[in-house]
Design a protein around this nucleic acid. Structure first.
Lengths: 272, 272
DNA sequence: GGGTATTTGTCCGTATGTATT
DNA sequence: AAATACATACGGACAAATACC
């Protein structure tokens, strides 16, 4: 046996999906039917299904069946948005532009807490480990689809001058603007630190992704005019529906040029 | 039963790892021993192990046993490197700076092919679908560790003036410099398009990662002085050992400030 | 090199639970 | 309530990879 049977079955199913024999959203034969088709045991068929499931190609629904996954049109976020365009409210910490013309972003009211700084936050915010920091957490959606989970951290001492940081409400026209008014801080730029990891239980539930899905985790450290960190924002995006763009240099063309109708037909989503 | 037994076992093992009872690199009890410990069947124990394996927490080695994964110190790549610093040879398409002081990058001699442009390349390079393009493919290592797989694509018409594009050798002091000399093209900047997906068979073998691991796939489109694409570079990085940094604004401090000894002890790697 | 013990990988059949229709 | 379909769990058998003598 060159390859194990369950891998051969997985490959065969993958081919059937790629070739269009099994279309997106279509239901696969039941496990018992596949067992008969491939003359294998049901457990072996299930091993094949697990392989494809963990790659996001198919989904199983208890009591219903197994279906080819329908990919949604990805959200594309430009990380190098103009500095001048950034401060349009807390939700605009990231701008999602491409494909987003007819999309609507929304977010929950921030959940505000004071926590001791974990190592990842303390190092980036340059406060001592365990020092209290203000955390402001939000769930974010695009067109009702769970899009990202975002938590911003500020040094607790900011609350002396910037009291509203502790209030569970959106700060208009933006926290950066507010910190400028109250603390005299000006944001000169930021650094994004991009990582990927598997989703934890919270994230699996919120994004409705399987237990072995991965997420982007982006740490954005914003710096003030003294080149000191004034905010750390941690945002988690599921990899199955998010992509990012970084522009370097002046006059880089709009990314929409890269898109054409054929690609959309192949990677269908909310347009389909 | 609140949670299935295999998930309870997985949680218990995860706790033992997080708490340090099972140290990095340590061998877990064998499946038969775990079966006795948890009074479950061997298959149920194996389901628990699969969960942790798919999250990269443990690794199984046939004939040897199951071990807690040892994470390597991640390679950090700055995507917004200075434009002037970029053209230091083809391998420097990305600079890996942080933590890389005492690391040495190496790469294979490029494998050169002429291919019809796939949709993803054709759209970005703005050539008709199926048009011939030159592809130059390299495997890249840092300190002998498989780091990334990189393929650069150029319009085939470039080969009229820039013959060396077709030669399977590194072009010194860099392809951008060479295209400037031969074609009069100047690179004014680029756009990176960051995505993540599960690794294909090639990538699994090269990076020695499990079948359900994910990779970053970054499409870098470089633009010339006419704002037209002159090159598309596709680079694949395993997510378990790669992170990326994007700096926006002037005077963003060096990211090394974000690192302190404690974190290194917790995320051990080549320094340990 | 060969043989053996150990350990994980594959595959099977069966039974029962849970979610959905 | 009944039927359907996937999820969990068990026990057994043999294969394949590795380590050790």
């Amino acid at each position: 046996m060159a390859q194990p049977m369950y891998q051969q079955i997985a490959e065969d199913l993958r081919t059937k999906i790629a070739s269009g024999i099994l279309k997106r959203g279509a239901q696969l034969p039941t496990e018992v039917e596949l067992r008969d088709q491939y003359e294998a045991s049901r457990n072996t068929v299930r091993d094949a299904i697990k392989r494809l499931t963990s790659q996001g190609l198919i989904e199983t629904k208890p009591g219903q069946g197994t279906f080819v996954s329908v990919k949604i049109d990805p959200f594309v976020t430009v990380l190098t948005a103009d500095l001048t365009e950034v401060d349009k409210g807390e939700g605009a910490t990231y701008l999602s532009k491409v494909n987003a013309e007819h999309r609507e972003a929304s977010m929950t009211v921030p959940k505000v807490e004071v926590q001791p700084a974990a190592a990842e936050i303390a190092n980036r915010l340059r406060v001592p480990l365990g020092q209290p920091v203000v955390s402001r957490h939000q769930k974010r959606f695009i067109d009702e689809v769970p899009w990202s989970l975002q938590t911003s951290f500020y040094p607790f001492e900011f609350t002396k001058g910037a009291v509203r940081l502790l209030m569970a409400e959106n700060i208009e026209p933006g926290v950066v603007h507010y910190l400028g008014e109250t603390m005299g801080l000006a944001q000169i730029g930021w650094r994004d630190w991009i990582t990927a990891r598997s989703a934890d239980n919270n994230e699996q539930a919120f994004f409705r992704i399987s237990h072995d899905s991965t997420v982007f985790e982006i740490f954005r450290t914003a710096f003030d005019q003294h080149k000191k960190p004034m905010r750390v924002t941690v945002t988690v995006f599921p990899t199955d529906r998010n992509q990012f763009i970084v522009n370097v240099g002046d006059g880089i063309p709009d990314p929409r040029y890269e898109e054409n109708p054929e690609e959309y037909d192949e990677k269908p989503g909310m347009t389909a």
